[in-house]
Structure formats: C-alpha cells, structure tokens
C-alpha cells in the first residue's frame, strides 16, 4: 500500500514539475476557470432577483447545493485528469506504452496526469460554499461537519467514477464520447439545482439509475433539516457514500473490460 502511494506521488510530482515550466499559463488558466465558472452561479443570483426561493430553496441554500457539487466535481477533475485526457492517449496510440510496464493500468493512468489548472474551479466552489454556509448561519455539531466532509468525499468519488467510465468508452468510440458529458458536466449542473424542480422521469434516472441525487441533494436535506419532498426513507442521505463508491467500482470494472477489449482488437 505504501509503495504504490509513494510511486503515485513521484509520478504526479513529475507531472506537476513539467507543467510548472509553463507557470504563467497556469496562472491565466486559474483565473479563467475561477472567474469564468462562477458566472454560472451569478446566473442563479440574477434569477433570484425575480423570486424569493427556487423549488423551496433559498439563495443561501442554493449556494450550498452549488458549492457542494462543484467542489466535489472539481476535486475529482483534478485527481482524475488522466482519464479525462485518456481519449487523446488512445487517439495518439500511446496506450501500448502503459501495457508494457509491470504495473496495473488503472493505477498508471491515474498517476499519468494531474491538473492543477483546475484548481480555479475548485476555488470558486469553495468561495460559493463558504458564502452559503455563512448566510445560513449554521450551528452544527461536529457530527454534521464530519458528515459534510464525508458527503464531499462521496461526491468526489462519484464524479471520479463517471470520468473513469467516460475515459473507458474511448476504447470503443472517440467520436460519440461527447454524449458522456450529459452525465459529467450535465450531472454537476443538474446537482446544483434542487431535484424536485425536474420532471419525474428525469429525477428517477438521477436517483435510481445514476445516483446523482445522493451526491449532494439527499445529504443537503439532512444537513439543512429540510423535509424530503419525495417521502423516501430517512436513511437516504446516509446511502450517499456507499452508492457513490459503487459508481467508482463500476467504473473500475468497466475499465478492466475496456483494457481486455483493447487487447483483443488492438484498436
């Protein structure tokens, strides 16, 4: 366990060092992502000049929803960049390089990229989340703070799983990959709004098939003491982490299938 971890940091460190050769580019990207992505939330602010609450959620509560999903998403994005870039690896025919090394391929792709430039997106998420918590005047005990951290980790694992699945599809198709954006980018956009505003079929897909509602919606209901409009059992918020981990596990199994497919077809 220790040895792969230290190798991981060594490889990631190498990646960061080579990116730091383009320091100014990093700063420009950071500012672009930070200021640019927050515009999404500014849009929500504009909508709130015309209404008191959205689907029963106040602006402060919306900031909380937005902040949690965006933070989980951007952290996943930073960590799992290797899978985000993976279609490019396939396109350039560079996957062979990983197969001739005596290490697990999942591990190798995970440690092949690291995207500090995406820290900008995480920064604006932290800013909005912080503002939300401040407006909400939360007076939580340690168990709720712990649960918040737990929820963010779960969300990160969930999006990481989706990015793995996204990357793995490139063993079969590169062209149609954009459809997966529905679940990754579409997922985080959807999760920044309360689930009850969407139609039933759409909601059901994102509760029961792709457990997006568990990323932040159900946990937020619990943390903010809001009643569940769907009357689902009270333990739903606590299923968040296990279900999110399941998505990552499915991603990893799918990855194995993908690698075997590559090995039999040679792409």
């Amino acid at each position: 366990m220790i040895e792969p971890l230290s190798l991981y940091f060594r490889l990631i460190g190498a990646r960061v060092r080579s990116q730091m050769q383009y320091k100014f580019s990093f700063i420009a990207d950071f500012i672009a992502a930070c200021v640019g992505m927050i515009m999404e939330f500014v849009g929500v602010l504009v909508l709130f000049t015309h209404m008191p609450a959205l689907g029963g959620w106040t602006l402060a509560q919306m900031a909380f929803l937005y902040g949690t999903t965006e933070l989980a998403f951007s952290l996943a994005n930073i960590l799992i960049e290797g899978f985000d870039q993976f279609p490019e690896v396939i396109r350039r025919g560079e996957f062979d390089k990983f197969l001739i090394r005596p290490r697990n391929t999942f591990f190798q792709i995970l440690s092949s990229e690291f995207a500090p430039r995406r820290i900008g997106r995480a920064t604006q998420a932290i800013f909005v989340l912080g503002a939300g918590l401040w407006w909400l005047h939360v007076s939580w005990g340690p168990e709720k703070w712990l649960f918040l951290v737990w929820t963010l980790l779960g969300g990160m694992v969930f999006y990481a799983g989706l990015f793995v699945i996204h990357g793995t599809f490139s063993f079969w198709t590169i062209e149609a990959l954009e459809t997966m954006n529905i679940f990754t980018y579409g997922g985080t956009t959807m999760a920044s709004y309360p689930m009850n505003i969407f139609s039933e079929w759409m909601r059901n897909i994102f509760i029961f098939i792709i457990p997006l509602a568990f990323v932040n919606y159900f946990p937020a209901l619990y943390l903010l003491d809001k009643p569940d409009p769907f009357g689902l059992p009270g333990f739903m918020p606590f299923l968040a982490f296990p279900l999110c981990s399941l998505v990552l596990m499915i991603g990893m199994i799918f990855w194995r299938v993908g690698v075997r497919h590559y090995q039999s077809t040679g792409n």
Binding site: R10, L11, P102
Partner: peptide, 19 residues
C-alpha cells in the same frame, strides 16, 4: 517511452521506481 517534458535523468529515475 520516456517523459516528454522531463530531463532524461528524471525519466530514468521514474522508471527505476516503476520497475
């Protein structure tokens, strides 16, 4: 099979740990 942006010695060093 080496790392494009890194000096040769660093690539070899990484391979040392991978293998």
């Amino acid at each position: 099979n080496l790392w494009w942006d890194l000096p040769v010695i660093e690539s070899l060093d990484l391979l040392k740990y991978i293998y």
